[in-house]
Design a protein around this nucleic acid. Structure first.
Lengths: 197, 197
DNA sequence: TTTGAAGGCTAGCGCTGCTACAGTGACGTA
DNA sequence: TACGTCACTGTAGCAGCGCTAGCCTTCAAA
């Protein structure tokens, strides 16, 4: 009786086809170009099919945003681990490595980042919600932990995250001198999370 | 020959009526509720009249955003001057006072702040553009200057501005623990702009 | 009084998100 | 194998969107 499974697989495959198509269009032409008619044309199904998988267009954006948070968590994790194990000498640069990776992620996929923080602002956050955003936040916190000293780790993580987010959004919207972005990141990281002495 | 002047006054009054109405609707129901039909109903003129004053709906958002930048510059200026003259003892708290005022401005008028930084992202910035955003930026810079020491003042101002902006957007979208916002602002301000010793 | 311009509205175009409904084809059962 | 059922999918359409062409009225100047 693999019929149900096959149907479920097809459903899942098409659901992913929709989110991947939406993401691709958004990254190429901006989220304004992501319409139900455009999506239905690209996935080669009629519009009502989209509503079998998502309750609205915003729902699709939310799904893309969650994918983004999962990928961000993975990217930050790799950067943190590549910077060295906690306690080692190289670990002292883990925060910087994670911060750089965060900024790279955002600038490499601006539409995805926009979905995560600007479009999907109604996406529930924090405890009891989706785990993906918390996982990404946890990676940043883990990189800070060895250097937190007497500081409140949670507060420190929130502050650094927000500061990085601000740098990225303002820089993306051409509000800051682009050539000084890495200098700003260095300054933010080193001042907000100083080396525990 | 006051006829031309009267016409110009009427034009200007109605232009302001449009931006004020748009801003009021946005602040009450969000920018999604600001449509040409809704605007035309509230100002009691037909839709084409709107296009006598603005080339598009985005153009209205830009006008509102510029108003916002002018008001922000004024608010920051008052906060900076109220904190004491440069060189005085109280002046050492000017950065903090300005930062607090910035955050208050954003949370008091979230739709206005959204227009300034999220909706009107195509608004030209920097040299040779509109002076309002530069004026607001200059107020923040002026508050920092006495404490900059050997730091690059421009870089420091950009960094603090971006950090504050990040704190505000993430906090507004319920991404951070709301009860710790003032603690985050204190931490950001004191670390990014430490007292020159 | 005539004339030209300025001001304003009606109506409508092509688009949007979303949905009611009907048709089709694959399935489980007799 | 024939049948009834149900999941699946497309057609067509609704209300609302930004924006505009074209007509009509009002008013100032000649």
């Amino acid at each position: 009786m693999g019929i149900e499974e096959r149907r479920a697989r097809n459903q899942e495959a098409r659901r992913r086809l929709i989110t991947e198509t939406a993401r691709a269009i958004a990254e190429r032409e901006g989220w304004g170009a992501v319409t139900t008619r455009r999506l239905s044309a690209e996935i080669e199904y009629s519009q009502p099919v989209i509503y079998k998988h998502f309750s609205s267009l915003d729902d699709i954006t939310d799904a893309v945003a969650l994918e983004g948070f999962a990928e961000l968590a993975e990217a930050l994790r790799e950067a943190r681990l590549a910077a060295g194990a906690p306690g080692s000498v190289a670990a002292s640069d883990a925060v910087h490595a994670v911060a750089i990776r965060y900024a790279t992620f955002a600038t490499d996929s601006p539409a995805l980042y926009e979905a995560m923080f600007t479009r999907a602002s109604r996406l529930p956050f924090g405890e009891g919600a989706h785990p993906e955003p918390s996982a990404a936040f946890a990676e940043l916190r883990a990189s800070i932990a060895p250097r937190a000293g007497d500081d409140d780790l949670e507060l420190l993580t929130e502050a650094l995250w927000a500061a990085l987010h601000g740098l990225i959004t303002l820089n993306t919207n051409a509000r800051l001198r682009p050539e000084h972005q890495s200098a700003r990141i260095d300054l933010i990281v080193n001042r907000i999370v100083p080396y525990a002495s």
